[in-house]
Design a protein around this nucleic acid. Sequence first.
DNA 1: TTGTAAAATTGGAACGTTCCAAATAAGACT
DNA 2: AGTCTTATTTGGAACGTTCCAATTTTACAA
Lengths: 345, 345
Amino acid sequence: MTKDRVTVVDIAKVAGVSKSTVSLVLRGSPLVNEATRAKVNAVMRDLGYVYNRGAANLRQSGSNSKIIGVVVNDLTNSFFAELAVGVDIVVQSAGFVQFLSNTSESVDRQREVIASMREHGISGLILSPARGTEGADLKPLVSADIPVVVAVRNVPGAKVSSICSDNREGLFAAVRHLASLGHRRIAFLGGFGDTAVFQERVDGYRDAVSACLVDQDDDLVFDAPPSRAGGADAIGRAISLVNKPTAAVCFNDAVAFGACDGLRANGIEPGKDFAVVGFDDVIEAKTAVPALTTISVDPQGMGRRAAQLLLKQISAGKAEAESIVSSVRLVVRESCGAALERAEA
Amino acid sequence: MTKDRVTVVDIAKVAGVSKSTVSLVLRGSPLVNEATRAKVNAVMRDLGYVYNRGAANLRQSGSNSKIIGVVVNDLTNSFFAELAVGVDIVVQSAGFVQFLSNTSESVDRQREVIASMREHGISGLILSPARGTEGADLKPLVSADIPVVVAVRNVPGAKVSSICSDNREGLFAAVRHLASLGHRRIAFLGGFGDTAVFQERVDGYRDAVSACLVDQDDDLVFDAPPSRAGGADAIGRAISLVNKPTAAVCFNDAVAFGACDGLRANGIEPGKDFAVVGFDDVIEAKTAVPALTTISVDPQGMGRRAAQLLLKQISAGKAEAESIVSSVRLVVRESCGAALERAEA
DNA sequence: TTGTAAAATTGGAACGTTCCAAATAAGACT
DNA sequence: AGTCTTATTTGGAACGTTCCAATTTTACAA
């Protein structure tokens, strides 16, 4: 039952040609006669041949392994799962396969994973970096001429391509919308203060606050873990202020959901008594009750674009660092109370 | 800048030993003298050597590539994302890396992906099969002695290991609980009728219905896509019956959430006017409003166990097919109205 | 026929590692 | 000093593919 592996020379022997010819057929070269090609293909089918990409790769100076490494910081978060799916779609249709790993926000794990991927000869890497990732972590990759695309979060001091959503603009739009609904005290909830993404979003918040003549008050910024629990915690602190906010923009949708939970726990109905806006537009946002007003970033689209950029760089051979900012848009649903305001107006 | 790849012979030359010795060091053999080991390691660090697993694998008759293939049918669904994370955790700590791909329920895609993985020489496969997967699809793998563990769903007619949750018992427990709360007309919502999982769950439902002296009525079974939208649709059909149910057990949590949406849209408050029970216990279940009573299956744990089983088979060399059924438990929260009933009693 | 260009095929060598059998070095004991 | 173990090291020869230069076959015109 345990038969030896079928190789090109086995095929060659049976088909009555040389191994070189079989190799040519394998790679779809136009040099080979149609009749022989057909015969070789038939024999391959018969013997149940499977291509050994490792061996091929060994000879071909390692550059085109047809493997793309994808490393995300939290696969459990559906945002990143969608991102990975987006990458997979284009990577797969280009005949590559993806090596996906999860780091759970651990830089050590990330280092291990990336090292392991290098050993396997990935021809490119898409990285949604763990918190605390530094430019030095990517250094070996770029000096080995392996194209890298960093997604979602930026890595300070790394000269690689990146694709991020327009965080500043997103928060600006959210605050402007709330201001147009008449809110004057708007809180910012959630996120870790030491990340670039947080900074960009808070900047957008601050810019909008001053541009829209809304109350400017640093006590209205509450950082918290970017999770549902963090959101519940943050909103609790926000509504215990003497001068309470009437609306909140959140670091992401998970925080926003948590904020809704927290409001309800305090007898406040989100979308009616208090306006909440999220960020990300995860799948649940549109079906939640109340449906979440949020900033849509299309993670799957981001994944697709990241993959396209990476593939471009791989085929170009030259890795010209390129930065894409992925535009975002405000999706108005129920949680901001817009419908209500309109009804009252 | 573009320097050639550093190989064992480069290391050997610089360290003043033979390539064989370097190879021994690489594999942590006890045969090599401590002093030489240290020196070789130092040189490897200096030259920035990266191990070429492809080459190694080529020589080692292909069996231990340290790659595990993981194929899931829907990474977007957080249940499967959790499963993948569970697999990753144990696979990674065993020094393997995972090749993860998503099939989006397409058997064709699944076939391609698995073929591609074989070309890369995976040493084992964990598969959460797409709908319609047949035993024949796994045939080439098993005849090539590549261990396979099928997770979540069974593949009819495949003699490979599997790990599934105890669907029958889960639904039995859900119905029994509802019956104990006084419900006599209990609907079953969602799922595709042609899947084994659906059959098992419906069987559990039917068993419990007859065991608990609840109304037995095939009109109370509504199949629908196992999604939020499907749940909303199914509940709509259920409550339009003349003899309406007062409770529903759902194919999964997504369906249950959809059912809650649908109830609310009809002015019925889930957990108060109508009892809803889900299946899976996804992360959102505990924080949703109302918190979802559901059957907890711990997908991450399933992933871990699947990976452990696979690794065991890989190291054993012999793939004795083994079936694990992962036990489940009822988690009572708010959506079944248990708290309410108790308050009334 | 013969010459010639184009088309198709081919036998090594090479890629970077591990395996094997054999060689060498280092102690330990007569 | 010689012999026997034991510890350490070492050159090829693989593994399955692709590349290269060269060869054979075919097609076509003169």
